[in-house]
Amino acid sequence: MSDEHDAEWYEKKFRPMIYLVAGILLVGTVITYVADVLGIAEKWGFRNAIIFALGVATVKASAVIYIFMHLKWDINLKTISLTMACAIIFLIGMMWLTVGSEIQDEGGIDGKPGGTETTWKHGKPSKPKALKAGDS
């Protein structure tokens, strides 16, 4: 990180912060695991389970990025923030458009993945034929 901190800061502030974040991460893992053992997918529905598990993962990931990778103190450096912003925008674009263009069913990922609602089927467009590019 840009050198605005002295040794004392590292000793007194940063080190306890590391222990704290490590604790949060471990607790997060335990929570996800326990939730799975308790079967939240059955209790809350699959969609909520996804939101829960990926939400916890995102919190964990943010903690790692923010503190461990000390982005908290580096985020104002344009080089880093712009690069990461680009990567993340393109990543989302890639996922969204790739998956989006292959799901014919408007139901999206509402149903259980692997279940019938979301099964991708070729040659059975749900849209009017006239709009389809591939039909000839």
């Binding site: 990461m84 680009c86 990567a87 996922m95 998956v99 993945p113 692997g114 019938t116 979301t118 099964t119």
Partner: peptide, 27 residues
């Protein structure tokens, strides 16, 4: 950081594959 941006896209490609294949998986 540039390298990590590239890594995001590498794993992102595989995550996309995961998502697409899972959504399209047969029963």
């Amino acid at each position: 950081w540039l390298f990590l941006a590239s890594e995001i896209m590498l794993f992102g490609g595989l995550f996309s594959a995961y998502l697409l294949l899972r959504v399209g998986a047969d029963d």
